[in-house]
């Protein structure tokens, strides 16, 4: 569905932000992209909806080459993107107007337009908020409105570029839940984040460093590589850190990435009758 082939990209013509990147993301997958500041995460994301096009190699989305300008329109209407700052991406003062902005631009006629807005708001858990003002929303709600705006365009791919970075824990959880639900209904999701708890939700985790994919695998495979992650300026999930500390002290637990799983194993260890 999304294929990066030997992709290279440079902003200034000298240093490459992406280099020899080869990746293939399946339809219906939930991929999380991690990496320190300056590792090329956002640059990668912007290649998926042709905001940037590669200087070397190619990127194809839905089988369409992003370098061909004739494809740009189709690619952008199928790959929606949500950015970091909730205040930067709402365009209208009423929620329904904001969500309708995208599909309206696609030329969707009115009865269907209204239905799309209603449905998109329901999907992000904001049903009945049509007539509310966007300025009165919390950061988490604004991000959900931004997602609804993308959903109303009925895309196949949703890209979140650190969309939870400015949210509080509750807003972050709400956003993660919405993504997981959309993915279950078949949407392809690419999520860029610093938060390991979110990475644990994905079915594939890719770690970028200096524009290259250095780790790639299931969350269990990638997130348990404590030494590797610290080397890449990333956090290790709490459950994984504690598992490793326990192993060092001679307690035979597996290396977990989910706190629930670790808790279960500890309970079994200490509470077996």
């Amino acid at each position: 569905m999304i294929v990066f082939k030997d992709t290279g990209f440079t902003y200034d013509g000298e240093s490459f932000v992406l280099k020899d990147l080869g990746l293939s993301l399946e339809k219906g997958s939930f991929t999380c992209i991690l990496g320190g500041n300056g590792s090329g995460k956002s640059t990668l994301a912007k290649h998926i909806n042709a905001l940037l096009v590669p200087d070397e190699g190619s990127v194809s989305v839905l089988g369409l080459d992003t370098r061909d300008e004739q494809n740009t329109y189709l690619i952008r209407s199928n790959a929606g993107m949500v950015f970091q700052n909730p205040d930067d991406q709402l365009v209208a003062s009423l929620i329904e107007n904001d969500v309708a902005f995208g599909p309206e631009n696609l030329g969707i006629p009115n009865p269907e337009l209204r239905q799309r807005v209603t449905q998109a708001l329901a999907e992000v858990g904001l049903q009945g908020f049509e007539r509310h003002e966007t300025s009165a929303l919390s950061g988490g709600q604004k991000q959900r409105v931004a997602i609804a705006g993308v959903l109303a365009m009925d895309p196949q791919i949703l890209i979140l570029d650190e969309a939870s970075a400015m949210l509080d824990p509750r807003g972050r959880k709400g956003l993660a839940r919405v993504c997981a639900q959309l993915n279950q209904r078949g949407m392809t999701i690419v999520m860029i984040t610093h938060f390991m708890e979110e990475a644990a939700l994905a079915d594939r985790v890719i770690v970028l460093q200096a524009g290259r994919a250095v780790l790639d695998g299931s969350p269990e495979e990638v997130l348990t590589q404590a030494d590797g992650l610290e080397h890449l300026n990333l956090d290790v999930p709490f459950a994984c850190k504690l598992s490793i500390e326990l192993q060092k002290r001679g307690v035979p637990v597996k290396t977990h990435i989910s706190e629930d799983a670790l808790k279960e194993e500890l309970c079994q260890l200490f509470l077996r009758a």
Partner: peptide
């Protein structure tokens, strides 16, 4: 914190008769 929790769980584990 992580260190002290790991310490106490390890102590518990070693103290377990079984």
């Amino acid at each position: 914190d992580i260190e002290s929790l790991a310490d106490e769980l390890a102590a518990l584990y070693k103290a377990q008769p079984a």
